[in-house]
Simulated assay, not measured.
Amino acid sequence: MNQQQIAIPLLTPLLPDRMAIMPYLEQIDSSRQYSNFGPLNTALESRLAALFQQHTSHSLHVTTVSNATQGLELALSSLGLPPKSKVVVPALTFVASLTAIIRAGHIPVVADIDPNSWLITPEVAMEVASKSGAQAVLAVAAFGQPLDTHSWSDLQSSTGLRVLIDAAGAFGSQWVESPDIPVVYSMHATKALAAGEGGMVVSGDADLNAHIKQLSNFGINLDANVGFPVGHLSFVGSNAKLSEYHAAVAHASLDQWDMQVQRRQDVYRPYRQSLELACGDALQWQAGVPVTAPTMLCVRMKAEARQCLERVCQHQKIATRRWYQPLLHQNSDFIQMIRQVTPVAEAIASGLIGLPFSPYMTSAEIDRVVAAVRLAVDATD
Results as ranks from 00 to 15, higher is better:
V202F: 10
L193I: 03
L193N: 13
V184G: 04
A125P: 02
M126N: 15
G160V: 00
A134F: 14
A142Q: 14
E177Q: 15
S117H: 00
L222T: 14
V201I: 15
V183F: 03
S132I: 00
V140S: 03
M200S: 11
P179E: 03
D154H: 13
G133T: 02
M126C: 15
I165W: 00
A134G: 02
E123N: 11
G231C: 04
A134I: 05
Q135W: 01
L161G: 01
D223R: 13
G231W: 00
S130G: 08
G169I: 12
A195S: 09
G172Y: 04
G169L: 10
R162P: 01
A210C: 08
V163C: 06
S173W: 07
K131W: 06
N217I: 09
I120V: 02
H211M: 15
H232D: 15
G160T: 01
H232N: 15
L233P: 05
Q145F: 14
H150T: 15
E177F: 07
G196L: 10
S132P: 04
S186Y: 06
A134W: 09
A224Q: 12
K213N: 07
P179L: 05
A189H: 11
A136K: 01
A141F: 09
M187I: 11
S157I: 08
V128A: 11
N116S: 09
G169K: 05
L208S: 12
A224V: 13
E197P: 02
A136Y: 04
G231S: 10
L147H: 10
A189Y: 12
V137D: 02
G231D: 08
S173T: 09
A136T: 01
D180C: 14
I120K: 02
L193D: 10
D114A: 11
S178H: 14
I181G: 03
A141I: 05
L208H: 07
G144Q: 07
E177Y: 10
E123K: 11
Y185E: 04
S203A: 11
D112H: 03
S157Y: 12
G172A: 01
G219Q: 10
D112L: 10
I181C: 05
